Amino acid sequence: MSAPNNSYDPVEVASLHPDAVARMRDDALAAIAGAADLDALKAVRVAHVGDRSPLALANREIGALPPAAKSDAGRRVGGARREVSEAVQARQAELEAERDARVLVEEAVDVTLPWDRGQRGARHPITTVAERMADIFVAMGFEVAEGPEVEAEWYNFDALNFLPDHPARSMQDTFFVAGADGAESGLVMRTHTSPVQVRALLDRELPVYVISPGKTFRTDELDATHSPVFHQVEGLVVDEGITLGHLRGAIDAFVLGMFGERLKTRFRPSYFPFTEPSAEVDMECFACRGASVGDPDRPCRTCSSEGWIEIGGCGVVNPKVLTAAGVDTGRYSGWAFGLGVERTLMFAHGVRDMHDMVEGDVRFTAAFGSEI
Rank of each mutant, 00 (worst) to 15 (best):
H192W: 06
H192T: 02
T193E: 05
T193K: 04
S194T: 07
S194E: 00
P195C: 04
V196M: 03
Q197H: 11
V198L: 04
V198I: 15
V198D: 07
R199G: 00
R199V: 02
L201F: 10
L201E: 00
L201D: 02
L201N: 05
L202A: 07
L202C: 13
D203T: 12
D203R: 14
D203V: 07
R204V: 04
R204W: 07
R204T: 02
E205L: 13
E205M: 07
L206A: 09
L206D: 13
L206R: 09
V208P: 13
V208R: 06
Y209V: 02
Y209E: 01
V210E: 07
V210G: 09
S212W: 01
P213K: 01
P213V: 05
G214V: 03
K215N: 00
T216S: 01
F217E: 00
F217A: 03
R218W: 02
R218V: 08
R218M: 06
T219W: 12
T219N: 14
T219K: 12
D220S: 08
D220F: 00
D220G: 02
D220C: 01
E221N: 10
E221A: 13
E221P: 00
L222V: 07
L222E: 13
D223A: 09
D223R: 02
A224T: 10
A224K: 08
A224E: 09
T225I: 11
T225N: 08
T225P: 08
T225F: 02
H226N: 06
H226V: 05
H226F: 10
S227A: 14
S227E: 14
P228W: 10
P228N: 10
P228F: 13
V229Y: 05
V229N: 02
V229L: 13
V229W: 03
Q232A: 05
Q232D: 03
Q232F: 09
V233E: 02
E234M: 05
G235N: 04
G235Y: 03
G235V: 06
L236R: 11
V237H: 07
V237W: 05
V237C: 10
V238R: 02
V238I: 11
V238S: 04
D239E: 10
D239W: 04
D239N: 14
D239M: 12
G241I: 08
G241V: 11
I242C: 06
T243W: 05
T243V: 12
L244A: 11
L244K: 08
L244P: 14
G245Q: 10
H246Q: 15
L247V: 06
L247C: 12
L247N: 13
R248T: 14
R248W: 13
R248S: 08
R248Q: 15
G249K: 11
A250V: 15
A250L: 15
I251T: 08
D252I: 12
A253S: 12
F254I: 09
F254Y: 14
V255Q: 09
V255L: 14
L256V: 05
G257D: 03
G257P: 13
M258P: 00
M258K: 03
F259M: 03
F259W: 07
F259G: 09
F259T: 04
G260W: 07
G260H: 05
G260K: 01
E261I: 06
E261L: 14
L263R: 11
L263S: 02
